[in-house]
């Protein structure tokens, strides 16, 4: 299991577009991928659940990947969040 903490920097937070890009990215991996926010777990492979997490600009989140391709998954998600999530 690998994990990493992030501060969300894009202005609108985890709105439709970034949530949909992130979920599509996560779905490519076999690993379980969880986004932790405000003490709750959200399945990163679901755009709907990611949006219900109400992640805003400035929010602290943790991404946890667990499975055979966990390293690769976390690396791609890290690059995605650091680049402003496509906004």
């Amino acid at each position: 299991m690998v994990s990493k903490e992030f501060t969300i920097n894009n202005e609108l937070g985890m709105h439709m577009r970034p949530a949909s890009l992130l979920s599509q990215m996560a779905a490519k991996y076999q690993s379980n991928i969880i986004v932790k926010h405000n003490g709750k777990d959200f399945n990163a492979k679901s755009v709907m659940l990611l949006m219900t997490a109400l992640i805003k600009c400035g929010s602290q989140i943790e991404v946890v990947c667990d499975g055979p391709d966990e390293e690769a998954a976390l690396a791609e998600i890290t690059a995605f969040i650091d680049s402003g999530m496509g906004d």
Binding site: M16, R17, S20, S23, Q24, A27, N43, K45, S46, V47, M48, L49
Partner: peptide, 12 residues
């Protein structure tokens, strides 16, 4: 496009 993404979601 968001509508298509929403319905295809595993939790939908």
């Amino acid at each position: 496009l968001g509508h298509a993404v929403m319905i295809s979601d595993p939790s939908m």
